[in-house]
Design a protein around this nucleic acid. Structure first.
Length: 255
DNA sequence: ATGCCTATTGTGAATAGA
């Protein structure tokens, strides 16, 4: 069995104690972090816990990391076809024969600006990349902060999100196109409860009212979907002092 | 309708997040 977690930590520096304690308590095999917000990564903190660290960072914004208790056999640090794109939003590793992709997909707000067109272009590049992996019949998982609310049931009130980049037909359609490659939304596949959220805004008491959205996902290629054992959201870290606004999503695969 | 709150940079107040 192998367990993988995705977690947008909203700054690894600000979140170091919470992330370290959660990993110590839960012992995931593979950890995918987003928004580390630093060009450096505190690798030593996790190496002493038995993890190898792989990361792509930048100052102030973005940044992704993969931590693994199993040997990292190969690494990729950028999404193909991105000439001129210097955002740290993609990292991938081969671990125990599995290709693990970790993404921080652009937010895209406000709609109608170059930020939204960047989001759509980034999703088009991701579509082409995953299509090539599918054509090659390469087993993979992709986890991360997709910044997409897939369906109306994935938010507390669809009317509140109609103008948002996470909820536009253009961005949701591109997410749907990823699924239509033949990928399985792991959390939705194993949990019939519609009210599954992974993000609650800091503002307006969203956490206290449980008014969240589901935007952090694990998508599985057909081969890995056959290995799906379970997938859960751990809401506990969102309730801590100094919490990230996202909480971990854990997927478990059979050997 | 807008801001609500948090983090970064840098030590103000602006930018970004979603």
């Amino acid at each position: 069995m192998v367990s993988l977690v995705t977690w947008n930590v909203n700054s690894i520096k600000a979140r170091l104690p919470i992330v370290r304690d959660w990993i110590a308590a839960n012992s995931p095999d593979i950890v995918c972090l987003q928004e580390i917000k630093t060009p450096e990564f505190p690798s030593f903190e996790f190496e002493t816990m038995g993890y190898s660290c792989l990361f792509v960072g930048q100052k102030s914004y973005n940044g992704v990391a993969i931590l693994s208790r199993l040997p990292i056999e190969a690494a990729e640090r950028e999404l193909p076809d991105g000439e001129g794109d210097d955002h740290a939003r993609f990292i991938a590793a081969d671990i125990a024969g599995l290709h693990v992709i970790n993404i921080y997909l652009p937010n895209g707000n406000p709609v109608g600006t170059e930020k939204f067109t960047y989001k759509l272009a980034w999703m088009d590049r991701l579509q082409r990349h995953l299509a090539r992996l599918m054509d090659a019949e390469r087993p993979f998982v992709i986890g991360g902060d997709f910044n997409i609310i897939p369906d109306d049931i994935d938010c507390y009130d669809p009317r509140a999100w109609t103008g948002d980049a996470l909820f536009q037909p253009e961005s949701r359609g591109r997410y749907r196109a990823l699924i239509n490659l033949g990928l399985t939304d792991a959390l939705r596949a194993v949990n019939p409860n519609p009210h599954l959220y992974t993000f609650w805004d800091y503002q307006a008491g969203r956490w206290q009212r449980d008014q969240g959205i589901r935007i952090d996902h694990w998508l599985l290629s057909p081969e890995t979907a056959d290995r799906l054992e379970g997938c859960v959201v751990d809401r506990a870290p969102r309730g801590l002092e100094k919490a990230s606004d996202h909480t971990p999503v854990i997927v478990t695969l059979r050997d």
